[in-house]
Computed example of a mutant assay.
Amino acid sequence: MKTLVHSAIAAAGLLLGAGVACAASETPVGSWKQVDDVTGMAKSIIQISEDHGELQGKIVQLMNLTPEEIAQDGAHPLCGKCEGERKDQPIEGMVIMWGVKRDSDVWTGGKILDPKSGSVYKVKLSLSDGGQKLHVRGYIGLSLLGRSQTWVRQE
């Protein structure tokens, strides 16, 4: 009888753990490797968090800086083209996405900053590949006019 109870508890724990893992893959919350849509190179690690139903994304690490970028901006570039409070602030640690809310199976309504150009765009997020890929669409006006990147979930 004891082994049956222990087995039931162990099975319940496994199911609960699987449910938590499944739920985590159904949301953009987590760490993502940003892959540049032009070069195909990983450019940064972005941590997406949720606060009061809104997502925000912060650059936690820059990657694969070219020798030209390092010569121009140093190993820890600043957002020289940004405006307002982000002007000349370190890109690492900067919140570049904010105000994004879930709308069915997409997340939208927020903004995303391109630190390279200093431009701010509307943003739309959608998950694919069992929650392992995040399609990020930055646009002005209509979603048809913009650019997309696919970010890859980090373990």
Rank of each mutant, 00 (worst) to 15 (best):
G80Q: 06
V29Q: 13
S44Q: 10
L78S: 07
M41S: 13
Q56N: 12
P67C: 02
A23F: 06
A42I: 01
S31E: 11
V60C: 05
C22E: 00
P67L: 03
A42H: 12
G30W: 12
D73W: 14
A23D: 05
K81A: 13
L55W: 12
P28C: 01
A23C: 01
A23S: 11
P28I: 02
W32V: 02
D37L: 08
Q34G: 11
D51W: 13
H52L: 13
Q34K: 14
L62I: 06
G74N: 10
L62N: 05
Q61L: 12
G53D: 04
L62D: 03
A24I: 00
L16K: 00
A23I: 06
I46L: 07
A23Y: 05
I70T: 14
E26Q: 10
G17L: 14
K43G: 00
C82L: 11
S25R: 12
T39V: 04
Q47W: 05
A21Q: 01
T39G: 05
I45R: 10
P28D: 02
P28T: 02
L62P: 13
N64L: 01
E50C: 05
D51I: 11
I59N: 00
E54T: 12
Q47S: 09
L16D: 03
S44C: 09
K81I: 06
V20C: 07
A21P: 00
K43I: 00
A24G: 00
L78P: 07
G80R: 09
Q56S: 13
K58I: 15
A42M: 02
I70M: 08
G80W: 01
N64M: 06
E54N: 14
V29M: 06
L15F: 15
M63E: 12
T39A: 03
P28E: 01
L78V: 10
H52N: 15
S44L: 06
A21K: 00
D73Y: 15
G53A: 06
P28K: 01
K58P: 06
G30P: 01
T27N: 04
T27Q: 11
E26N: 09
L65F: 10
D51L: 14
G17C: 13
H52R: 15
E68S: 09
K33M: 11
C79D: 03
Q34I: 04
K33Q: 13
T39S: 15
H52M: 11
D36C: 07
V38F: 11
A23E: 02
